[in-house]
């Protein structure tokens, strides 16, 4: 039997924990992420012969490294490498929420977008073309209403499908000529080092240019 580990991520108050409860029911454990007082929740379920482990990440607006919850969310995705990240997106606040989704894509994570609270979005007359969104971002998009347990099965089917496929996502943002030139230079250096085994070279290069504290430390330590 195959096993997949998924991380549930998303902005605060988008329904991650509701979705987590839908997925795992009572089969969950609560603990702490090491070193900080941020609750860690994980659980498991079976679907179509797959053992699916679900980890609930703290709600964050971005993957910079300012607060403990952001660092945890990022470290988990970067270092523990879950098989995929399910980003719970508040459909009623799409613009704000897609910012995080794009950061996951930049990290090179295998991503599923759960377009949650589609009922709230509809009540505000937001019409969202999930298929177009999926095409543009190159990732599956599943509509859900977590507090009524709608779309949970579709999400699970999607997880199993994606679990069988290879990650061929080739998402990149064009940062313009000057920055792309520097990214390329750094990327070439990183590719020759051991760092490229654990991290996406392009992502490291971008974060170095952002002067991200944690990435700078990682590179100084191993580079």
């Amino acid at each position: 039997m195959s096993e997949v580990t998924i991380a549930l991520a998303g902005n605060p108050n988008t329904g991650k924990t509701t979705m987590f409860n839908n997925l795992t029911g009572a089969r969950q454990h609560v603990g702490n992420w090491p070193g900080v007082t941020v609750e860690k929740k994980w659980g498991g379920l079976k679907h179509q012969g797959y053992d699916i482990n679900v980890v609930d990440l703290p709600g964050v607006y971005s993957l910079t490294a300012y607060s403990p919850d952001e660092v945890i969310a990022r470290r988990f995705v970067v270092e523990e490498r879950p098989d995929m990240v399910v980003d719970i997106v508040d459909a009623a606040n799409l613009e704000r929420n897609l910012y995080l989704a794009v950061q996951f894509l930049e990290l090179g994570a295998k991503l599923i977008i759960a377009l949650n609270m589609t009922d709230v979005a509809a009540s505000r007359n937001h019409r969202i073309d999930a298929e177009k969104l999926s095409q543009r971002l190159g990732v599956p998009v599943v509509r859900t209403v977590a507090n009524r347990n709608q779309g949970t099965k579709e999400l699970l089917d999607c997880i199993v499908n994606l679990g069988q496929s290879v990650n061929d996502a080739d998402f990149r943002i064009d940062y313009g000529k000057e920055i792309e030139r520097e990214i390329k230079n750094l990327q070439e250096i990183i590719q020759k080092s051991l760092l490229s085994l654990n991290y996406s070279p392009r992502w490291l290069a971008i974060k170095l240019l952002e002067e991200d504290d944690e990435v700078t430390r990682i590179v100084q330590g191993k580079g």
Binding site: Y61, T64, Y66, Y99, E211
Partner: peptide, 12 residues
């Protein structure tokens, strides 16, 4: 500063 501006931008 750079850090604050980025954090604020992250929050929208």
């Amino acid at each position: 500063g750079f850090g604050l501006c980025r954090k604020l931008a992250d929050m929208g």
